[in-house]
Simulated scan of single mutants.
Amino acid sequence: METMIMTVGTSLLTNRDENLEKKRPWVGQKNIGDRKIAIQWMSEIDPELISAETNTIWRLNPNFHDEILLLHSDTPSGLECAEVLKEYLESIHHQKDVSLHPIPGINYDLDESASALEKMAVLLKDLITQSKGNITLAATGGFKAQTMIMALIGNTFKIPVCYVHEQYKALIYLPYLSDTAEPQVLIKLANLPESGLDRSQIIRVQNNSYGHHRPKVWKKVEKMLQDIPWVEYVRFDQNAFSAPKNQIKAATRKTGDGRHIFWIHLYESEEKKMAVSVETTGYTPEHLEQATKELRERLGRLI
């Protein structure tokens, strides 16, 4: 089980939708208003385009029973956005465990004080202590001071902190810093059976005439997959384009003998993109959860 602790801002309310044909019904209003209309609109729009928070959750791809904690500013607009997001996750994505947590004293005025950010740090520590699963801190939503606090707490507790990088359209993980200020990679390894195959044989992506269309990051991803002992085979798969750009997604099918498969969609431009399926040695729900977390974080540190 995973616990995702996420800061929530007001992009759900304030995004202007310049490039959307069907704009949010509350554009230009001071509040979202009718919840039924809001949820209906959100159900018809790509999660990547709804808000910073839905974009992040879509990429984290939680299971139905994962714990999602939404930290919102202690303001009417912050609470409204968090409440609508909670209802959307429960009614449209069928999440079973979503809760709201106001950040004491934090708002979007110009008088934020150090004491308010200290209260956020205390709240985060308490939530981490009380969490039900393996924790990921998601810092895309909210304002920059909140991201800084999440980064500090994540580094202290050695908990992964991620956010969506708009330029690369990818879920990025912040590095850990040691006492010597050197970045560290502290990824919790999945406990899956080892493949036993020669690692030079698992990549079945042919060096064909389409090689020049591959994103530059592919070489790094290829080495990453070879180094993971529970990866069995890697092949081209058009279905993997359904995964978020530069992200993974559990495939909708398994191997013939019941092993889990992941899809990876690498994207640099419309001319340079590729999609691969990754067969694993895992076959239990626990294997799927562990492999998802490791592979997602490894990829997020490469992009």
Score class of each variant (00 low, 15 high):
residue 190 A to S: 12
residue 127 L to T: 06
residue 47 P to G: 03
residue 245 K to W: 06
residue 209 S to E: 13
residue 194 E to M: 11
residue 66 D to C: 01
residue 15 N to W: 04
residue 109 D to H: 12
residue 229 P to W: 04
residue 81 C to M: 09
residue 161 V to W: 08
residue 162 C to Y: 06
residue 111 D to R: 10
residue 111 D to G: 01
residue 11 S to P: 07
residue 41 W to Y: 10
residue 290 Q to I: 05
residue 189 L to M: 11
residue 236 F to V: 11
residue 275 A to L: 04
residue 262 F to T: 08
residue 261 I to Q: 12
residue 71 L to F: 04
residue 226 Q to R: 15
residue 76 P to E: 04
residue 76 P to A: 03
residue 160 P to C: 09
residue 207 N to Y: 00
residue 16 R to H: 10
residue 64 F to Q: 12
residue 34 D to L: 04
residue 81 C to E: 03
residue 6 M to T: 10
residue 36 K to L: 13
residue 137 L to Y: 02
residue 249 K to V: 09
residue 182 E to Q: 15
residue 12 L to D: 11
residue 136 T to C: 10
residue 159 I to C: 04
residue 264 I to P: 04
residue 241 F to S: 05
residue 208 N to W: 03
residue 262 F to E: 11
residue 72 H to Y: 15
residue 158 K to Q: 13
residue 153 I to E: 07
residue 143 F to C: 00
residue 49 L to V: 03
residue 294 E to N: 00
residue 164 V to S: 02
residue 193 P to Y: 02
residue 220 K to H: 04
residue 218 W to A: 08
residue 165 H to V: 02
residue 301 R to C: 12
residue 213 H to T: 14
residue 246 N to Q: 09
residue 189 L to F: 08
residue 293 K to A: 10
residue 190 A to D: 03
residue 94 H to V: 00
residue 56 T to V: 11
residue 238 Q to V: 15
residue 182 E to W: 11
residue 25 P to Y: 05
residue 89 L to N: 01
residue 89 L to G: 02
residue 101 H to P: 03
residue 297 E to R: 03
residue 5 I to Y: 09
residue 34 D to A: 07
residue 228 I to N: 12
residue 301 R to A: 09
residue 282 G to L: 14
residue 201 Q to H: 10
residue 206 Q to L: 15
residue 64 F to P: 00
residue 86 K to G: 07
residue 130 Q to D: 15
residue 129 T to V: 09
residue 71 L to M: 13
residue 161 V to Q: 08
residue 142 G to N: 03
residue 25 P to A: 09
residue 292 T to M: 07
residue 68 I to A: 00
residue 105 G to M: 13
residue 28 G to N: 00
residue 266 L to H: 10
residue 198 D to P: 04
residue 164 V to E: 05
residue 290 Q to K: 09
residue 300 G to A: 05
residue 106 I to L: 15
residue 6 M to H: 06
residue 182 E to I: 13
residue 167 Q to A: 13
residue 301 R to K: 07
residue 76 P to H: 01
residue 136 T to V: 15
residue 279 E to Y: 13
residue 3 T to K: 01
residue 73 S to E: 08
residue 132 K to C: 02
residue 44 E to Q: 13
residue 129 T to R: 12
residue 264 I to H: 06
residue 116 A to G: 05
residue 146 Q to V: 01
residue 297 E to D: 03
residue 280 T to R: 10
residue 137 L to D: 00
residue 222 E to G: 12
residue 104 P to E: 07
residue 250 A to R: 14
residue 17 D to H: 06
residue 107 N to M: 03
residue 24 R to L: 03
residue 214 R to S: 01
residue 214 R to Y: 14
residue 149 I to S: 08
residue 183 P to G: 10
residue 260 H to M: 08
residue 95 Q to L: 15
residue 135 I to G: 03
residue 65 H to E: 15
residue 207 N to P: 05
residue 78 G to E: 03
residue 86 K to V: 01
residue 89 L to Y: 14
residue 151 A to L: 11
residue 198 D to L: 11
residue 251 A to V: 06
residue 302 L to Q: 02
residue 285 P to M: 10
residue 239 N to R: 14
residue 113 S to M: 09
residue 8 V to L: 02
residue 276 V to S: 06
residue 9 G to A: 07
residue 90 E to R: 01
residue 292 T to P: 01
residue 225 L to M: 08
residue 291 A to N: 06
residue 96 K to C: 09
residue 135 I to N: 06
residue 90 E to C: 06
residue 140 T to Q: 05
residue 97 D to F: 14
residue 286 E to T: 04
residue 57 I to M: 11
residue 44 E to I: 05
residue 299 L to G: 08
residue 81 C to H: 02
residue 124 L to Q: 04
residue 117 L to F: 15
residue 11 S to I: 08
